[in-house]
């Protein structure tokens, strides 16, 4: 063995603990993401406004259930206007941007996301007065054999565009009520190996979602490939009377999994649910 090889081995061994630590760092945020999304703005780090609930280990990188829990009520005077969610170390960190209103009642949001590797999941809330508050949660990668795509692509393809709402029993007028929206869509990332190109699939994902109750917006979102196949969201709204909950979603297809410069608009889907409390 050449002495150079031995030296590089020593270097690798000495660096190993440092590399392991680096996995839990904020480098991608500090060096790149902060400026990309919030150039020149100051962000307070706190878990007093929102907190992220996520499993310590991503059991399945294709499907990590996370929940943003809000700690403040949505009132006319003070409310969470927007929450940006990022997975620092995903190939495309942007998970989604979610807009809430006072009619949301609570700016809670549960969803399932793809997490490629050891990474911080980050949520930044923007209040109606412009204040920015950030919280984060570190998630360990899965040690198994599955990949961050989806188990049965063809099944999701066959149901593409199918949607359903599920509501908790006992929705009460004037009180925050939880609803779940299920969208069947493969949410294809477009990440793939070049030499097996016969199956080239561009990224193909749900890019926007508008949920309203009696035409008043409750949750409006821009989403991307980090949302798991068959996107699933739980959120709140305050029904002021009987009425119609409506979801309108649209998908898109982009040439590259990690650039949004060349995309074509896709299809729109909608679903309604009549609420008679």
């Amino acid at each position: 063995m050449k002495i150079e090889t031995i030296k590089s081995w020593i270097l690798v061994l000495l660096l190993a603990p440092a590399l392991a630590l680096a996995a839990n760092d904020d480098a991608d945020w500090t060096n790149k993401l902060k400026d990309q999304y919030f150039a020149g703005k100051s962000i307070e780090e706190s878990s007093d406004v929102i907190e992220i609930d996520a499993p310590y280990r991503a059991e399945d990188p294709a499907l990590v259930p996370i929940k943003i829990v809000s700690k403040v009520p949505q009132t006319r005077d003070s409310y969470i206007k927007k929450i940006l969610v990022l997975v620092d170390k995903n190939p495309f960190p942007f998970v989604g941007e979610f807009e809430f209103t006072p009619e949301s009642g609570k700016a809670d949001l549960a969803m399932r996301i793809r997490v490629n590797t050891y990474s911080n999941i980050r949520a930044i809330a923007e209040m109606n007065d412009g204040r920015l508050i950030m919280t984060k949660k570190f998630v360990k990668a899965s040690g198994g054999c599955s990949a961050p795509i989806g188990a049965d692509l063809d099944a999701a393809m066959q149901r593409l565009g199918k949607m359903k709402f599920r509501l908790d029993d006992g929705a009460k007028i004037g009180e925050p009520t939880q609803a779940q929206l299920l969208i069947s869509h493969p949410n294809i990332t477009g990440m793939q190996m070049d030499q097996v190109t016969r199956f080239v699939k561009k990224s193909h994902f749900i890019k926007e979602m508008r949920i309203s109750f009696n035409d008043k917006p409750i949750l409006t979102a821009k989403t991307d490939i980090a949302i798991s196949a068959d996107p699933n969201f739980r959120f709140y709204f305050v029904p002021d009377k009987a009425g119609v909950l409506k979801a309108e979603v649209a998908d898109t297809s982009c040439e590259s999994p990690t650039s949004r410069d060349a995309c074509t608009a896709g299809n729109s889907f909608s679903e309604t649910y009549t609420l008679n409390p």
Binding site: P61, A147, L153, T189, Q192, V196, F199
Partner: peptide, 9 residues
């Protein structure tokens, strides 16, 4: 197809 979509990861 599975090799193509999982390969990089």
């Amino acid at each position: 197809r599975a090799m193509a979509t999982r390969g990089l990861y």
